[in-house]
Design a protein around this nucleic acid. Structure first.
Lengths: 207, 207
DNA sequence: TCAATAAATGAACGTTCGGTCAAATATAGG
DNA sequence: CCTATATTTGACCGAACGTTCATTTATTGA
Protein backbone atom coordinates (compact mmCIF):
# COMPACT_ATOMS: atom_id res chain seq x y z
CA UNK A 1 0.00 0.00 0.00
CA UNK A 2 2.01 2.88 -1.36
CA UNK A 3 1.28 6.39 -0.22
CA UNK A 4 -0.47 6.80 -3.55
CA UNK A 5 -2.29 3.85 -4.95
CA UNK A 6 -4.15 4.21 -8.18
CA UNK A 7 -7.37 3.89 -6.26
CA UNK A 8 -6.54 6.76 -3.96
CA UNK A 9 -5.50 8.87 -6.93
CA UNK A 10 -8.71 8.19 -8.77
CA UNK A 11 -10.80 8.78 -5.71
CA UNK A 12 -9.18 12.18 -5.28
CA UNK A 13 -9.81 12.98 -8.91
CA UNK A 14 -13.44 11.95 -8.71
CA UNK A 15 -13.81 14.12 -5.66
CA UNK A 16 -12.48 17.07 -7.55
CA UNK A 17 -14.71 16.40 -10.54
CA UNK A 18 -17.71 16.34 -8.26
CA UNK A 19 -16.63 19.58 -6.65
CA UNK A 20 -16.24 21.26 -10.02
CA UNK A 21 -19.61 20.03 -11.15
CA UNK A 22 -21.17 21.24 -7.94
CA UNK A 23 -19.58 24.63 -8.45
CA UNK A 24 -21.10 24.98 -11.88
CA UNK A 25 -24.54 24.04 -10.65
CA UNK A 26 -24.39 26.25 -7.56
CA UNK A 27 -23.21 29.13 -9.74
CA UNK A 28 -26.11 28.65 -12.09
CA UNK A 29 -28.89 28.03 -9.58
CA UNK A 30 -27.76 29.21 -6.17
CA UNK A 31 -27.58 26.96 -3.16
CA UNK A 32 -31.29 26.66 -2.50
CA UNK A 33 -32.36 25.87 -6.06
CA UNK A 34 -29.48 23.55 -6.87
CA UNK A 35 -30.25 19.84 -6.60
CA UNK A 36 -28.08 16.84 -5.87
CA UNK A 37 -29.54 15.15 -8.93
CA UNK A 38 -28.34 17.91 -11.19
CA UNK A 39 -24.90 17.96 -9.61
CA UNK A 40 -24.65 14.19 -9.99
CA UNK A 41 -25.67 14.39 -13.62
CA UNK A 42 -23.20 17.21 -14.28
CA UNK A 43 -20.44 15.17 -12.62
CA UNK A 44 -21.48 12.01 -14.49
CA UNK A 45 -22.03 9.98 -11.36
CA UNK A 46 -25.07 8.44 -9.84
CA UNK A 47 -26.79 10.31 -7.07
CA UNK A 48 -25.75 7.73 -4.51
CA UNK A 49 -22.09 8.05 -5.38
CA UNK A 50 -22.07 11.62 -4.18
CA UNK A 51 -22.48 10.44 -0.63
CA UNK A 52 -19.31 8.43 -0.80
CA UNK A 53 -17.43 11.68 -1.25
CA UNK A 54 -19.42 14.20 0.70
CA UNK A 55 -21.88 14.15 3.57
CA UNK A 56 -24.48 15.96 1.54
CA UNK A 57 -25.45 19.20 -0.14
CA UNK A 58 -24.29 21.48 2.65
CA UNK A 59 -20.94 19.75 2.97
CA UNK A 60 -20.42 20.05 -0.76
CA UNK A 61 -21.20 23.73 -0.71
CA UNK A 62 -19.19 24.41 2.41
CA UNK A 63 -16.12 22.63 1.06
CA UNK A 64 -16.25 24.77 -2.07
CA UNK A 65 -16.50 28.02 -0.15
CA UNK A 66 -13.79 26.95 2.26
CA UNK A 67 -11.26 26.02 -0.42
CA UNK A 68 -11.72 29.14 -2.47
CA UNK A 69 -11.76 31.41 0.55
CA UNK A 70 -8.46 30.01 1.72
CA UNK A 71 -7.12 30.54 -1.76
CA UNK A 72 -8.15 34.17 -1.94
CA UNK A 73 -6.90 34.88 1.57
CA UNK A 74 -3.52 33.45 0.64
CA UNK A 75 -3.32 35.64 -2.42
CA UNK A 76 -4.33 38.59 -0.33
CA UNK A 77 -1.44 38.00 2.03
CA UNK A 78 0.96 38.07 -0.90
CA UNK A 79 -0.52 41.35 -2.04
CA UNK A 80 -0.32 42.78 1.46
CA UNK A 81 3.44 42.33 1.43
CA UNK A 82 3.93 43.16 -2.21
CA UNK A 83 4.86 46.80 -1.93
CA UNK A 84 5.51 49.68 0.43
CA UNK A 85 3.76 52.12 -1.81
CA UNK A 86 0.03 52.30 -0.98
CA UNK A 87 -1.07 53.07 -4.51
CA UNK A 88 0.92 50.18 -5.90
CA UNK A 89 -0.44 47.89 -3.25
CA UNK A 90 -3.99 48.93 -4.02
CA UNK A 91 -3.27 48.35 -7.67
CA UNK A 92 -2.04 44.87 -6.90
CA UNK A 93 -5.11 44.28 -4.79
CA UNK A 94 -7.44 45.23 -7.62
CA UNK A 95 -5.50 43.12 -10.07
CA UNK A 96 -5.59 40.17 -7.70
CA UNK A 97 -9.36 40.28 -7.32
CA UNK A 98 -9.96 40.80 -11.02
CA UNK A 99 -7.81 37.88 -12.08
CA UNK A 100 -9.25 35.72 -9.32
CA UNK A 101 -12.78 36.30 -10.56
CA UNK A 102 -11.70 36.02 -14.18
CA UNK A 103 -10.16 32.62 -13.50
CA UNK A 104 -13.27 31.43 -11.77
CA UNK A 105 -16.38 33.32 -12.55
CA UNK A 106 -18.50 30.54 -11.15
CA UNK A 107 -17.12 31.27 -7.72
CA UNK A 108 -17.97 34.92 -8.10
CA UNK A 109 -21.51 33.95 -9.03
CA UNK A 110 -21.74 31.78 -5.96
CA UNK A 111 -20.65 34.40 -3.49
CA UNK A 112 -22.75 37.01 -5.26
CA UNK A 113 -25.68 34.64 -4.80
CA UNK A 114 -25.11 33.99 -1.14
CA UNK A 115 -23.79 37.36 -0.10
CA UNK A 116 -27.19 38.88 0.64
CA UNK A 117 -27.90 36.02 2.99
CA UNK A 118 -25.22 37.38 5.28
CA UNK A 119 -27.44 40.18 6.46
CA UNK A 120 -30.01 37.67 7.68
CA UNK A 121 -30.02 36.21 11.15
CA UNK A 122 -29.63 32.49 10.89
CA UNK A 123 -28.72 29.51 12.95
CA UNK A 124 -26.75 27.80 10.23
CA UNK A 125 -23.09 27.34 11.01
CA UNK A 126 -22.44 27.67 7.30
CA UNK A 127 -23.89 31.15 7.06
CA UNK A 128 -22.21 32.18 10.28
CA UNK A 129 -18.86 31.07 8.97
CA UNK A 130 -19.38 32.89 5.67
CA UNK A 131 -20.29 36.11 7.42
CA UNK A 132 -17.22 35.84 9.65
CA UNK A 133 -15.04 35.33 6.61
CA UNK A 134 -16.55 38.26 4.79
CA UNK A 135 -16.02 40.63 7.68
CA UNK A 136 -12.47 39.45 8.20
CA UNK A 137 -11.81 39.90 4.50
CA UNK A 138 -13.18 43.42 4.55
CA UNK A 139 -11.02 44.03 7.62
CA UNK A 140 -7.92 43.11 5.69
CA UNK A 141 -8.73 45.54 2.91
CA UNK A 142 -9.54 48.10 5.56
CA UNK A 143 -6.03 47.75 6.90
CA UNK A 144 -4.55 48.44 3.49
CA UNK A 145 -6.70 51.56 3.35
CA UNK A 146 -5.56 52.60 6.80
CA UNK A 147 -1.98 52.33 5.65
CA UNK A 148 -2.79 54.48 2.65
CA UNK A 149 -4.39 57.12 4.84
CA UNK A 150 -1.46 57.12 7.28
CA UNK A 151 1.00 57.42 4.43
CA UNK A 152 -0.86 60.43 3.13
CA UNK A 153 -1.78 58.72 -0.10
CA UNK A 154 -5.48 58.48 0.68
CA UNK A 155 -7.88 61.05 2.05
CA UNK A 156 -8.85 61.07 5.71
CA UNK A 157 -11.92 58.94 5.25
CA UNK A 158 -12.86 56.05 7.52
CA UNK A 159 -10.91 53.07 6.15
CA UNK A 160 -13.99 50.88 6.28
CA UNK A 161 -15.79 53.24 3.95
CA UNK A 162 -12.84 53.29 1.59
CA UNK A 163 -12.75 49.51 1.62
CA UNK A 164 -16.49 49.31 1.02
CA UNK A 165 -16.22 51.68 -1.90
CA UNK A 166 -13.40 49.82 -3.56
CA UNK A 167 -14.90 46.35 -3.29
CA UNK A 168 -18.19 47.81 -4.44
CA UNK A 169 -16.58 49.04 -7.63
CA UNK A 170 -14.75 45.76 -8.17
CA UNK A 171 -17.86 43.68 -7.68
CA UNK A 172 -19.93 45.90 -9.92
CA UNK A 173 -17.41 45.68 -12.74
CA UNK A 174 -17.19 41.92 -12.33
CA UNK A 175 -20.94 41.52 -12.35
CA UNK A 176 -21.18 43.74 -15.40
CA UNK A 177 -18.50 41.68 -17.11
CA UNK A 178 -20.39 38.48 -16.47
CA UNK A 179 -23.72 39.96 -17.45
CA UNK A 180 -22.80 41.69 -20.66
CA UNK A 181 -19.28 42.03 -22.02
CA UNK A 182 -17.76 38.71 -21.06
CA UNK A 183 -15.46 38.64 -24.05
CA UNK A 184 -12.44 40.75 -23.29
CA UNK A 185 -10.55 39.93 -20.12
CA UNK A 186 -11.83 41.42 -16.92
CA UNK A 187 -8.35 42.47 -15.89
CA UNK A 188 -8.45 45.11 -18.62
CA UNK A 189 -10.69 47.03 -16.30
CA UNK A 190 -7.93 47.55 -13.78
CA UNK A 191 -6.85 51.00 -15.00
CA UNK A 192 -10.39 52.39 -15.07
CA UNK A 193 -11.13 51.02 -11.65
CA UNK A 194 -7.99 52.53 -10.20
CA UNK A 195 -8.65 55.84 -11.86
CA UNK A 196 -12.19 55.87 -10.56
CA UNK A 197 -11.21 54.89 -7.07
CA UNK A 198 -8.18 57.13 -6.69
CA UNK A 199 -9.03 60.16 -8.79
CA UNK A 200 -12.79 59.95 -9.14
CA UNK A 201 -14.98 60.52 -12.14
CA UNK A 202 -15.22 64.26 -11.82
CA UNK A 203 -13.09 66.73 -13.70
CA UNK A 204 -10.92 68.50 -11.15
CA UNK A 205 -12.43 71.87 -10.45
CA UNK A 206 -10.12 74.80 -11.05
CA UNK A 207 -10.81 76.45 -7.74
CA UNK B 1 -72.90 48.58 -5.31
CA UNK B 2 -70.87 51.65 -4.56
CA UNK B 3 -67.52 52.16 -6.24
CA UNK B 4 -66.02 51.18 -2.90
CA UNK B 5 -67.83 48.64 -0.86
CA UNK B 6 -66.37 47.56 2.43
CA UNK B 7 -65.64 44.19 0.93
CA UNK B 8 -63.63 45.62 -1.92
CA UNK B 9 -61.77 47.85 0.50
CA UNK B 10 -60.86 44.97 2.75
CA UNK B 11 -59.90 42.78 -0.14
CA UNK B 12 -57.48 45.42 -1.31
CA UNK B 13 -56.06 45.74 2.17
CA UNK B 14 -55.63 42.02 2.53
CA UNK B 15 -53.89 41.94 -0.77
CA UNK B 16 -51.46 44.56 0.41
CA UNK B 17 -50.86 42.74 3.69
CA UNK B 18 -50.05 39.58 1.82
CA UNK B 19 -47.68 41.46 -0.45
CA UNK B 20 -45.89 42.98 2.51
CA UNK B 21 -45.61 39.63 4.20
CA UNK B 22 -44.28 38.09 1.03
CA UNK B 23 -41.72 40.85 0.75
CA UNK B 24 -40.42 40.16 4.24
CA UNK B 25 -40.12 36.45 3.58
CA UNK B 26 -38.52 36.85 0.16
CA UNK B 27 -36.06 39.32 1.66
CA UNK B 28 -35.13 36.89 4.38
CA UNK B 29 -34.94 33.69 2.34
CA UNK B 30 -34.68 34.57 -1.30
CA UNK B 31 -37.17 33.43 -3.90
CA UNK B 32 -36.14 29.80 -4.07
CA UNK B 33 -36.03 29.14 -0.33
CA UNK B 34 -39.18 31.09 0.53
CA UNK B 35 -42.33 29.02 0.95
CA UNK B 36 -45.98 29.86 0.48
CA UNK B 37 -46.64 28.41 3.93
CA UNK B 38 -44.29 30.85 5.57
CA UNK B 39 -45.70 33.79 3.64
CA UNK B 40 -49.21 32.74 4.63
CA UNK B 41 -48.22 32.46 8.26
CA UNK B 42 -46.48 35.85 8.14
CA UNK B 43 -49.59 37.37 6.58
CA UNK B 44 -51.87 35.60 9.07
CA UNK B 45 -53.86 33.88 6.41
CA UNK B 46 -54.29 30.25 5.51
CA UNK B 47 -52.32 28.90 2.63
CA UNK B 48 -55.42 28.48 0.53
CA UNK B 49 -56.40 32.11 0.93
CA UNK B 50 -53.25 33.20 -0.87
CA UNK B 51 -54.61 31.78 -4.10
CA UNK B 52 -57.64 34.04 -3.92
CA UNK B 53 -55.30 36.99 -4.28
CA UNK B 54 -52.44 35.74 -6.41
CA UNK B 55 -51.90 32.99 -8.90
CA UNK B 56 -48.99 31.57 -6.96
CA UNK B 57 -45.48 32.12 -5.76
CA UNK B 58 -44.15 33.53 -9.01
CA UNK B 59 -47.05 35.92 -9.41
CA UNK B 60 -46.52 37.14 -5.86
CA UNK B 61 -42.86 37.73 -6.47
CA UNK B 62 -43.36 39.29 -9.85
CA UNK B 63 -46.00 41.70 -8.57
CA UNK B 64 -43.61 42.88 -5.87
CA UNK B 65 -40.78 43.49 -8.29
CA UNK B 66 -43.06 45.16 -10.76
CA UNK B 67 -44.56 47.62 -8.28
CA UNK B 68 -41.26 48.67 -6.79
CA UNK B 69 -39.52 48.90 -10.12
CA UNK B 70 -42.22 51.22 -11.41
CA UNK B 71 -41.82 53.26 -8.26
CA UNK B 72 -38.07 53.64 -8.63
CA UNK B 73 -38.33 54.41 -12.32
CA UNK B 74 -40.82 57.14 -11.54
CA UNK B 75 -38.48 58.65 -9.00
CA UNK B 76 -35.65 58.40 -11.45
CA UNK B 77 -37.57 60.44 -13.98
CA UNK B 78 -38.06 63.18 -11.41
CA UNK B 79 -34.34 63.19 -10.72
CA UNK B 80 -33.53 63.25 -14.41
CA UNK B 81 -35.37 66.55 -14.74
CA UNK B 82 -34.32 67.94 -11.39
CA UNK B 83 -31.36 70.04 -12.45
CA UNK B 84 -29.27 71.24 -15.33
CA UNK B 85 -26.06 70.90 -13.38
CA UNK B 86 -24.64 67.37 -13.79
CA UNK B 87 -23.08 67.25 -10.35
CA UNK B 88 -26.30 68.32 -8.70
CA UNK B 89 -28.22 65.79 -10.71
CA UNK B 90 -25.84 63.02 -9.72
CA UNK B 91 -26.19 64.11 -6.12
CA UNK B 92 -29.95 63.89 -6.42
CA UNK B 93 -29.60 60.49 -8.01
CA UNK B 94 -27.51 59.18 -5.14
CA UNK B 95 -29.87 60.65 -2.60
CA UNK B 96 -32.83 59.11 -4.37
CA UNK B 97 -31.36 55.62 -4.32
CA UNK B 98 -30.20 55.89 -0.72
CA UNK B 99 -33.55 57.02 0.58
CA UNK B 100 -35.33 54.48 -1.54
CA UNK B 101 -33.34 51.64 -0.02
CA UNK B 102 -33.56 53.17 3.43
CA UNK B 103 -37.33 53.24 3.18
CA UNK B 104 -37.47 49.66 2.08
CA UNK B 105 -34.45 47.62 2.89
CA UNK B 106 -36.39 44.42 2.26
CA UNK B 107 -36.65 45.35 -1.38
CA UNK B 108 -32.93 45.95 -1.56
CA UNK B 109 -32.36 42.51 -0.09
CA UNK B 110 -34.64 40.98 -2.66
CA UNK B 111 -32.94 42.50 -5.67
CA UNK B 112 -29.54 41.79 -4.15
CA UNK B 113 -30.68 38.19 -3.85
CA UNK B 114 -31.94 37.85 -7.36
CA UNK B 115 -29.47 40.09 -9.14
CA UNK B 116 -26.86 37.36 -9.68
CA UNK B 117 -29.50 35.27 -11.41
CA UNK B 118 -29.54 37.81 -14.20
CA UNK B 119 -26.25 36.55 -15.55
CA UNK B 120 -27.72 33.09 -16.00
CA UNK B 121 -29.49 31.92 -19.13
CA UNK B 122 -33.02 31.00 -18.27
CA UNK B 123 -36.35 30.47 -19.90
CA UNK B 124 -38.35 32.13 -17.18
CA UNK B 125 -40.23 35.19 -18.28
CA UNK B 126 -39.74 36.56 -14.79
CA UNK B 127 -35.97 36.50 -14.98
CA UNK B 128 -36.04 37.85 -18.51
CA UNK B 129 -38.19 40.75 -17.44
CA UNK B 130 -35.91 41.50 -14.49
CA UNK B 131 -32.83 41.50 -16.67
CA UNK B 132 -34.52 43.79 -19.15
CA UNK B 133 -35.45 46.17 -16.36
CA UNK B 134 -31.95 46.15 -14.92
CA UNK B 135 -30.34 46.97 -18.23
CA UNK B 136 -32.84 49.71 -18.94
CA UNK B 137 -32.22 51.13 -15.50
CA UNK B 138 -28.48 51.12 -16.02
CA UNK B 139 -29.09 52.76 -19.37
CA UNK B 140 -30.89 55.63 -17.69
CA UNK B 141 -28.01 56.24 -15.32
CA UNK B 142 -25.70 55.93 -18.27
CA UNK B 143 -27.51 58.79 -19.92
CA UNK B 144 -26.98 61.00 -16.91
CA UNK B 145 -23.31 60.14 -17.07
CA UNK B 146 -23.21 60.94 -20.76
CA UNK B 147 -24.65 64.37 -20.01
CA UNK B 148 -21.99 64.88 -17.38
CA UNK B 149 -19.24 63.98 -19.80
CA UNK B 150 -20.64 66.22 -22.52
CA UNK B 151 -20.95 69.10 -20.10
CA UNK B 152 -17.32 68.65 -19.15
CA UNK B 153 -18.14 67.80 -15.57
CA UNK B 154 -17.08 64.17 -15.85
CA UNK B 155 -13.99 62.63 -17.37
CA UNK B 156 -14.04 61.10 -20.81
CA UNK B 157 -14.78 57.59 -19.61
CA UNK B 158 -17.37 55.33 -21.21
CA UNK B 159 -20.66 56.32 -19.58
CA UNK B 160 -21.51 52.68 -18.96
CA UNK B 161 -18.41 52.27 -16.86
CA UNK B 162 -19.18 55.41 -14.93
CA UNK B 163 -22.69 54.15 -14.28
CA UNK B 164 -21.40 50.75 -13.22
CA UNK B 165 -18.97 52.35 -10.80
CA UNK B 166 -21.55 54.59 -9.21
CA UNK B 167 -24.20 51.96 -8.69
CA UNK B 168 -21.49 49.65 -7.41
CA UNK B 169 -20.56 52.13 -4.71
CA UNK B 170 -24.19 52.76 -3.81
CA UNK B 171 -25.00 49.06 -3.57
CA UNK B 172 -21.89 48.36 -1.52
CA UNK B 173 -22.71 51.09 0.97
CA UNK B 174 -26.28 49.90 1.21
CA UNK B 175 -25.25 46.30 1.77
CA UNK B 176 -22.74 47.41 4.37
CA UNK B 177 -25.43 49.45 6.09
CA UNK B 178 -27.75 46.46 6.27
CA UNK B 179 -25.01 44.10 7.36
CA UNK B 180 -23.39 46.14 10.09
CA UNK B 181 -24.23 49.71 10.93
CA UNK B 182 -27.95 49.75 10.41
CA UNK B 183 -28.54 52.40 13.06
CA UNK B 184 -27.81 55.77 11.56
CA UNK B 185 -29.67 56.65 8.40
CA UNK B 186 -28.19 55.45 5.15
CA UNK B 187 -28.68 58.86 3.56
CA UNK B 188 -25.89 60.18 5.76
CA UNK B 189 -23.55 58.38 3.40
CA UNK B 190 -24.44 60.63 0.51
CA UNK B 191 -21.52 63.07 0.96
CA UNK B 192 -18.90 60.32 1.21
CA UNK B 193 -20.31 58.53 -1.80
CA UNK B 194 -20.27 61.70 -3.86
CA UNK B 195 -16.78 62.57 -2.75
CA UNK B 196 -15.57 59.09 -3.61
CA UNK B 197 -17.27 59.03 -6.97
CA UNK B 198 -16.41 62.55 -8.10
CA UNK B 199 -13.04 63.20 -6.48
CA UNK B 200 -11.78 59.74 -5.66
CA UNK B 201 -10.07 58.45 -2.56
CA UNK B 202 -6.56 59.48 -3.50
CA UNK B 203 -4.87 62.66 -2.38
CA UNK B 204 -4.30 64.79 -5.45
CA UNK B 205 -0.73 64.40 -6.56
CA UNK B 206 1.26 67.62 -6.77
CA UNK B 207 2.67 66.90 -10.20
C1' DT C 1 -8.61 -17.68 -10.87
C1' DC C 2 -10.82 -16.41 -6.72
C1' DA C 3 -12.24 -14.54 -2.60
C1' DA C 4 -12.22 -9.87 -0.18
C1' DT C 5 -12.80 -5.24 -0.44
C1' DA C 6 -14.12 -0.86 -2.38
C1' DA C 7 -16.98 1.89 -5.25
C1' DA C 8 -21.08 2.89 -7.87
C1' DT C 9 -25.81 2.25 -8.79
C1' DG C 10 -30.71 3.37 -8.76
C1' DA C 11 -34.84 2.06 -6.45
C1' DA C 12 -37.06 3.40 -2.39
C1' DC C 13 -38.15 6.33 1.79
C1' DG C 14 -39.64 10.15 4.37
C1' DT C 15 -40.30 14.96 4.00
C1' DT C 16 -41.44 19.24 2.08
C1' DC C 17 -43.31 22.03 -1.29
C1' DG C 18 -46.66 24.46 -4.56
C1' DG C 19 -51.07 24.12 -5.66
C1' DT C 20 -56.23 22.36 -5.32
C1' DC C 21 -60.70 21.78 -3.44
C1' DA C 22 -64.79 20.46 -0.81
C1' DA C 23 -66.40 22.12 3.34
C1' DA C 24 -67.00 25.78 6.73
C1' DT C 25 -67.60 30.50 7.80
C1' DA C 26 -68.69 35.28 7.17
C1' DT C 27 -71.09 38.89 4.71
C1' DA C 28 -74.80 41.23 2.02
C1' DG C 29 -79.23 42.14 0.31
C1' DG C 30 -84.05 41.44 0.63
C1' DC D 1 -84.07 35.87 9.47
C1' DC D 2 -82.80 33.64 5.40
C1' DT D 3 -80.75 32.72 1.21
C1' DA D 4 -77.17 33.76 -2.16
C1' DT D 5 -72.57 34.95 -2.58
C1' DA D 6 -67.90 35.80 -1.27
C1' DT D 7 -64.15 34.51 1.54
C1' DT D 8 -61.37 31.46 4.30
C1' DT D 9 -59.87 27.19 5.85
C1' DG D 10 -56.93 23.07 6.25
C1' DA D 11 -56.80 18.51 4.64
C1' DC D 12 -55.13 16.63 0.61
C1' DC D 13 -52.51 15.62 -3.91
C1' DG D 14 -48.68 14.78 -6.93
C1' DA D 15 -44.09 16.08 -7.75
C1' DA D 16 -39.55 16.93 -6.32
C1' DC D 17 -36.15 16.86 -2.99
C1' DG D 18 -32.17 15.08 0.18
C1' DT D 19 -30.75 10.99 1.90
C1' DT D 20 -30.25 5.84 2.63
C1' DC D 21 -29.25 1.20 1.39
C1' DA D 22 -29.44 -3.45 -0.59
C1' DT D 23 -27.55 -4.87 -4.76
C1' DT D 24 -24.40 -4.88 -8.55
C1' DT D 25 -19.99 -3.92 -10.57
C1' DA D 26 -15.08 -3.17 -10.49
C1' DT D 27 -10.60 -3.61 -8.38
C1' DT D 28 -7.21 -5.55 -5.48
C1' DG D 29 -3.87 -8.97 -3.59
C1' DA D 30 -2.73 -13.70 -3.46
Amino acid sequence: MAAETRRAREKAMHRREILEAAKRVFAKKGFAAATIDEIAQEAEFSKGAMYGYFEGKEDLFFTLIQEKSDDIEGRFMEVAESSRDPETKIGNLVEMYLSFFEEDRDFFQIIAFEHPRLGVKTHSRLAENMKERYIRNLGLIEKVMQEGVSAGALKEIEPRLLATGLVGIIHAFTAQWILIDGKKPLTERKPVILELFLDGAGVAAVT
